[in-house]
């Protein structure tokens, strides 16, 4: 697997480029500047942690990276395409193809099996049935749950549920795995297991952006940016 060693000025492997991103919220006549002039570039194969306390604007940043929200000003390029002018349908399509979400509390559909949960993004990407089966089985194998495909979420442990969610995130080969406090609901041991899985996925070439308030968890990433009061600063750690 190719490590992130490309020359600093090459644009060919840039996945995400944010320039001067601002996000304002209007609350009761007051304007709240949640993100202030954010500049961020992420290249293919990076494993980045965005570290910040709650209220720092990291969730807003995640929403913008994940195309769930659009910035008030500034430029956001994802895989070379400018984000901002798309309508809801187009944004959904971009999310489905480019972003693999991993949430703190897994967000699995409780009445669907592990298999069906992983299949969901592939259905929305209009992947034909046979190919879906192949990919779902492969992804669940990769997270070590090949024998739990027919299980419902409530029959699985928290760690297993988060692994199903990770399998769902990688199923459609997204450009970025976007994880929001992925270990927040897990105990120490299972949290470490999930982090090991992230490491493996990154080794295989997946680009990972992890949002967290936990410096210890952030330490698993190869690069850390800190966010405080809507301003980011490059963390010292490279290849931590």
């Amino acid at each position: 697997m190719r490590r992130q060693q490309a020359p600093a000025h090459s644009d060919s492997d840039v996945i995400l480029r944010m320039q001067d991103i601002c996000k304002d919220y209007h609350t009761g006549g007051e304007i709240q500047h949640v993100l202030k002039n954010i500049d961020l570039t992420v290249r293919k194969g990076e494993y980045l942690a965005v570290l910040g306390p709650s209220g720092s604007g990291k969730s807003t940043l995640m929403n913008i990276i994940g195309c769930l929200d659009v910035p008030t000003s500034g430029s956001y390029e994802l895989q070379g395409a400018e984000i901002g002018s798309q309508n809801e349908n187009e944004l959904s399509e971009i999310r489905g193809n480019e972003i693999g979400f991993i949430f703190q509390s897994y967000y699995l559909l409780q009445k669907q099996t592990a298999y069906q949960n992983v299949e969901l993004p592939l259905i929305y990407a209009n992947i034909p049935e046979r190919k879906r089966r192949e990919r779902v089985e492969h992804c669940l194998e990769e997270v070590g749950l090949a024998d739990k495909m027919g299980y419902f979420p409530n029959q699985l442990s928290g760690g297993q549920q988060q692994r199903v969610a990770i399998a769902r995130a990688v199923a459609n080969h997204p450009s970025i795995l976007l994880a929001d406090e992925p270990t927040g609901a897990l105990d120490q041991n299972t949290g470490v297991q999930v982090m090991n899985l992230f490491h493996t996925l990154n080794e295989e070439g997946n680009t990972i952006i992890m949002i967290t308030h936990d410096a210890k968890i952030a330490g698993h990433a190869k690069r850390i940016v800190k966010i405080l009061d809507g301003v980011i600063s490059e963390g010292a750690v490279e290849d931590a």
Binding site: G66, L68, E88, N89, S92, E93, R95, G96, N97, I99, F101, Y107, L109, L120, P121, Y124, A125, R168, N172
Partner: peptide, 16 residues
Amino acid sequence: TREIGLRKALGAQPYR
């Protein structure tokens, strides 16, 4: 509601 939000995050277009 949350299921709908999740489906949208996973790429479901509003029309779907």
